[in-house]
C-alpha cells in the first residue's frame, strides 16, 4: 500500500506494522467485518418476519395452519444449530438444483444420484459453473441468510407467540366490545402491545445471533474468525514477506473487543427501544414513564 513496503525486512517496527496491516490478506480480513455486519443487518429483519409468520400461524384458529406453525417452532428449536447448519445448506442447495434440473433438463436420462455423487446438468448448476467467483460467494451468503433466518425465526416465533399471549386479555375483550372484528383486534390492539413483552426475549436472540456469526465458515463464507485464525497462524519467511510467530491470541483479542463493543452498542440501542415501546403501556415500565413525565 505504501511505497516503502517493497522490502519489509529493513523497516522499523511502526512502519513494518503499517505495511503488514495494510497488505492484501488484511484487507480481506477487514472486508469480512463488513460481511458479518451485513449478515446481521439482513438476517435480523428477515428472521423477525419468519418469527412473526410462525407465531401468527401457531395461534391461528385453522388447525392445519396452527400445526404447521407449532411444528416449525418445535422442530427447529429442537435440532442442534450446528447439525442444522451442516445439513440445511447442502440440502437447500441440492433442492434448488434438483428443481432447476427437472425444469431445465427434461431430456436428461442419467440418474441424479450416482453412488456418492450428486449430478445435475450443467444448466441447472447454481450458480452456473461458469459464473465468476463473486457470484458463488454471494450465493453462499444468501444461503447463510436463509439458514440463519429459519433457525432464529423459530426462536423468534416462540418469543412472539409468548408476547402475544402476555397481552392482557381484558384489552382484547374491550376491543371486541367496541365492535372490532378479529383482524382489527389483532393488528390494532394485540400487535402494538405485544412488543414490549417480546422485546427482552428478542434482545437475547439478537445477542445470540451476533455471537453465532462464526458459524458462517461452516457455510463456506470466510468470516472474521476464519481470517483471525488464518492471519494469526505462524508464518515462515519462505511464504510471506511478514514472518511472525503464533499471533492468534492477538487477533482473537481484537475479535473479543469487537464483539464486546457490538454487545455494548446493542444494549444501549435496545434500552432506548424498550423505553420507547413502554411509553403509554399498561405495564410497570409504562407506569414508571408516566410518573416521570407527570412529576
Amino acid at each position: 500500500m505504501f511505497s516503502y513496503c517493497a522490502d519489509p525486512d529493513t523497516l522499523g517496527t511502526f512502519r513494518w506494522f503499517s505495511c503488514y496491516l495494510t497488505n492484501g490478506v488484511h484487507w480481506s480480513f477487514y472486508l469480512s467485518f463488513i460481511k458479518v455486519l451485513a449478515l446481521l443487518a439482513v438476517t435480523a429483519p428477515v428472521a423477525l418476519s419468519f418469527g412473526f409468520a410462525g407465531a401468527m400461524a401457531a395461534r391461528s384458529h385453522f388447525p392445519p395452519l396452527s400445526w404447521l406453525g407449532k411444528a416449525y417452532i418445535a422442530i427447529v428449536r429442537g435440532v442442534p444449530d450446528i447439525a442444522f447448519f451442516l445439513f440445511f445448506v447442502i440440502a437447500l442447495d441440492q433442492g434448488f438444483e434438483w428443481i432447476r434440473h427437472k425444469v431445465l433438463c427434461r431430456d436428461w436420462t442419467d440418474p441424479i444420484r450416482q453412488g456418492n455423487d450428486f449430478l445435475v446438468c450443467q444448466a441447472a448448476k447454481l450458480p452456473l459453473g461458469t459464473a465468476p467467483e463473486w457470484v458463488h460467494e454471494t450465493y453462499g451468503f444468501f444461503l447463510a441468510v436463509i439458514t440463519f433466518s429459519i433457525v432464529f425465526g423459530a426462536f423468534a416465533a416462540n418469543v412472539l407467540f409468548g408476547g402475544m399471549r402476555a397481552v392482557p386479555h381484558a384489552q382484547l375483550e374491550t376491543a371486541e366490545a367496541y365492535g372490532m372484528n378479529r383482524r382489527q383486534t389483532f393488528w390494532k390492539i394485540l400487535v402494538p402491545q405485544m412488543w414490549v413483552y417480546a422485546l427482552p426475549g428478542l434482545s437475547n436472540l439478537w445477542m445470540v445471533l451476533i455471537k453465532a456469526t462464526p458459524l458462517l465458515f461452516l457455510l463456506g463464507v470466510e468470516d472474521i474468525v476464519y481470517w483471525a485464525r488464518e492471519l494469526g497462524g505462524t508464518k515462515t519467511s519462505k511464504f510471506t514477506q511478514y514472518p511472525h510467530g503464533d499471533w492468534r491470541m492477538w487477533y482473537f483479542l481484537f475479535l473479543l473487543i469487537f464483539y464486546l463493543g457490538m454487545t455494548r452498542i446493542s444494549e444501549l440501542g435496545l434500552e432506548r427501544l424498550m423505553r420507547r415501546l413502554s411509553h403509554g403501556q399498561a405495564t410497570s415500565g409504562g407506569e414508571l414513564l408516566r410518573k416521570e413525565t407527570t412529576a
Partner: peptide
C-alpha cells in the same frame, strides 16, 4: 470456456496457502 473449479484448503504451505496479497 469450460470452467473447472479447483478446491483447496489454503492453509498448508508449501502445497497451498494464502499469500500476502490474499490469493
Amino acid at each position: 470456456a469450460d470452467t473447472v473449479r479447483m478446491g483447496t484448503e489454503g492453509a498448508y504451505p508449501p502445497y497451498n496457502f494464502i499469500n500476502d496479497a490474499g490469493e
